[in-house]
């Protein structure tokens, strides 16, 4: 709710990559005189290298344990070279009837896609109205939307649970999609983006041309919103995919999403970490793949999000 009070940071283009190339003359100058512009020195790469290792180590550790067997973890002279059992352990995870890996994967994909799609649609529509259309009540309504960002999910879980269990929807992925079909953050984000990226004159011109509201929205709003919508969709997808609290409460253990299935891997009485961590990697794989292809967009999405702060 307080986010509105924070003055947005000024730029619309976050990146300096276009501006980056410095005049040749500065190239040779002493590094300490300028904080940017000069090619970064050795120690910056070392620092970043350390950060990268820290970011990747848990992945490696999972693979290390996940490719061993149940005794690997207790072996005092454990090798830092992965063993050869990863596929076998992964197969154990996939075939564990208590974990329901394939169902979990299917549920995660379906629910995250549905949530992302519906958040994008509702947010784009509302964002367009808040950003570019003048109507009585728009200011207080937008403030209201932003204020709801402070409302914790916990505030709704009890009645939603009662409601869904009364309707017999618990255990259905609908129960995790429906509460997430809108996002106050999404509306706020699209509003900010559209405000900055569509000049008012453009809409005026369209209206002078006699274009209807829906036509203006479609030809100007949607077109302009596309990059932001893609990022919002991506971001929502990742968030929905990783969500645990509500799915854990409302889904049946026989029909889980991936994070819920992961929690089952651990709560099974036989804690064999080679299998648990193989499962962890397995469940992270789809998002890692997504990250390889869309990571760039996610990065720029987060950076743009910061700018609209």
């Amino acid at each position: 709710m307080t986010a509105l009070e924070t003055p947005p940071i000024s730029t619309t283009e976050a990146s300096d990559s276009e501006r980056m190339p410095q005049p040749r003359a500065t190239r040779g100058r002493n590094r300490t005189t300028k904080i940017r512009g000069v090619r970064a020195g050795f120690w910056v790469y070392v620092g970043l290298g350390v950060v990268l290792v820290g970011a990747l180590f848990p992945f490696y550790w999972s693979f290390l344990i996940g490719s061993g067997d149940s005794s690997t973890i207790n072996d005092p002279n454990m090798s830092w070279i992965p063993g050869g059992n990863f596929l076998e352990n992964a197969a154990t995870v996939v075939n564990d009837p208590a974990v329901n890996f394939w169902r979990a994967l299917g549920n995660s994909i379906t629910s995250s896609l549905l949530i992302a799609a519906s958040v994008v649609v509702t947010s784009t529509l509302a964002g367009w109205a808040f950003a570019k259309l003048r109507f009585p009540g728009s200011k207080p309504l937008l403030v209201f939307v932003v204020a709801t960002m402070a409302v914790p999910m916990q505030l709704g879980v009890v009645p939603l649970y009662i409601l869904f269990s009364d309707l017999g929807w618990t255990g259905n992925i609908g129960a995790i999609v429906i509460p997430a079909v809108t996002s106050a953050f999404g509306v706020f984000w699209m509003t900010q983006y559209l405000q900055q990226s569509v000049p008012d004159e453009l809409i005026e011109a369209a209206r002078v041309d006699g274009a209807s509201m829906i036509r203006t929205f479609w030809t100007i709003g949607v077109v302009a919103a596309r990059p932001a919508a893609a990022m919002l969709g991506l971001f929502t997808f990742v968030t929905a995919w990783n969500n645990f609290f509500w799915p854990f409460i409302v889904l049946d253990r026989s029909d889980p999403t991936l994070p819920v299935a992961l929690s089952l891997l651990q709560s099974n009485h036989f804690v064999d970490y080679s299998i648990v961590l193989a499962g962890v990697l397995l469940s992270t794989l789809p998002l890692l793949l997504l990250f390889v292809f869309a990571g760039k967009q996610l990065v720029s999405g987060i950076m743009q999000g910061a700018v609209k702060g």
């Binding site: 970043l48 950060v51 990268l52 970011a55 990747l56 848990p58 992945f59 550790w61 999972s62 344990i65 973890i73 990742v238 995919w241 990783n242 645990f244 991936l258 994070p259 992961l262 929690s263 891997l265 651990q266 970490y273 648990v276 961590l277 962890v280 469940s283 992270t284 998002l287 890692l288 997504l290 990250f291 990571g295 760039k296 996610l298 990065v299 987060i302």
Partner: peptide, 20 residues
């Protein structure tokens, strides 16, 4: 992208690895 990689891992998965 490198610094953002951990973000794609579910908190549950992160918790399992670190608890270990």
């Amino acid at each position: 992208m490198g610094v953002l990689v951990p973000f794609v891992m579910a908190p549950v998965a992160v918790a399992l690895i670190f608890s270990n």
